[in-house]
Simulated assay, not measured.
Amino acid sequence: MALGIPDSLTSSLGRLLRPSEHDELLRSAVRLARLTFSAKAASVFLYDEERDRLVFEASSGEGEDRLLGVAIPTAGGVAGWVFQTGETVLLGDVQDDPRFDREFAQSTGYVPTTLMAAPLELEDRVIGVMEVLDPALQRFGEMAAVDLFTELAAQTAITLALMAAARSLTRTTREGLTPWTRLEIALSRTEASDAAVDDLLNALSRFVTATSGRGGHPL
């Protein structure tokens, strides 16, 4: 019932703009990567420009409860190398590769043997990195596994693009929304049911109408 924007759109916007929805999208992406390759773990790093760090934003599998929010330099480790070069990499034995940061891996509680990492690219720039640890490469063959993983990373980047667009939409439209629309979007971002939100908005509408009729001040 919001003014200026259809109810169906404001309801959808509320869900799209909800931070918990963004978190779940990323968690789903890393779970899919881990399950696809029967890997021990999968993670997504996003680039924090202010700190010039790659930050663990989502993780699934080994160490997932210890990694969220951890920041690493962009100039070190396999993830840093992928971020800097924009290239997908497969390390069949991490011990033989100088790019592998064993000390950091030990700090997470899990040291892999095999690792794949791919850049998350958005409009020709790298915005993060996806990794899978100890994937079951024999299911696909190395070349096919790299191709599939690169595609999964591309899909994850698209998800991040949608999230960025949603956040941008919030910033650019908020000033032009009526108070009713802003209220409905805010309510739809809570855990309240659609029926409860509708009941509250209808009650407020009746109250404002009655108050206006008596010379009061509407919203």
Rank of each mutant, 00 (worst) to 15 (best):
G141Q: 10
R167D: 07
A154N: 12
F140E: 04
R182H: 02
R174Y: 04
D147V: 08
T172I: 12
L177E: 03
A165V: 10
L187S: 10
S193C: 04
A195H: 07
S205E: 12
G216I: 09
A203P: 00
L162W: 06
V208E: 11
A196W: 05
I185M: 09
H217G: 03
A153T: 11
L133N: 11
L187W: 04
V208R: 06
E191S: 10
S168V: 09
R214Y: 01
L177A: 03
T170E: 11
R171N: 12
F149E: 06
L183E: 15
G141A: 06
F140D: 04
E184V: 09
L200C: 01
S188E: 14
Q138R: 15
A161Q: 14
A195D: 11
L201F: 05
L152T: 10
D198S: 08
A210K: 12
H217C: 01
D194G: 05
T190Q: 09
S212Y: 03
A161E: 14
D134G: 09
R189E: 13
T190Y: 03
A192C: 02
T170F: 00
R139H: 07
L204F: 02
R182Q: 09
D198I: 07
Q138H: 13
A192E: 11
E175F: 04
E142I: 06
L133M: 15
A161P: 01
R189L: 05
R182E: 06
L160Q: 12
W180C: 00
L187H: 09
E175Q: 14
R206C: 00
R206S: 11
V208P: 00
E151M: 12
L204M: 07
M163P: 00
L162D: 14
L200E: 05
L187G: 08
G141S: 09
E175H: 13
T181R: 02
E175A: 15
A153P: 07
T209R: 15
T150S: 13
T211N: 08
Q155Y: 14
A144E: 14
S193W: 02
V146F: 03
R206W: 03
L152V: 11
D199N: 08
A195Y: 03
L160D: 04
T178N: 03
E151G: 07
A136S: 13
A210C: 01
R214K: 11
T170S: 09
S168R: 15
T170W: 05
E142Q: 12
T173Q: 07
H217Q: 12
L133Q: 15
A164Q: 12
R171I: 13
R182F: 00
D134I: 11
Q155K: 15
T156V: 11
S205C: 00
H217N: 11
Q138T: 14
E175P: 06
A196V: 10
A165N: 12
G176C: 03
G176P: 01
R206H: 09
R171G: 03
E184W: 04
F207D: 11
R189A: 09
T190A: 06
L137V: 15
D134N: 15
L137S: 03
R189C: 05
N202S: 05
A154G: 12
E191L: 04
D147R: 14
R206F: 01
T150I: 02
A157H: 13
R174L: 02
G213W: 00
E142N: 07
S168L: 10
A192M: 13
M163H: 06
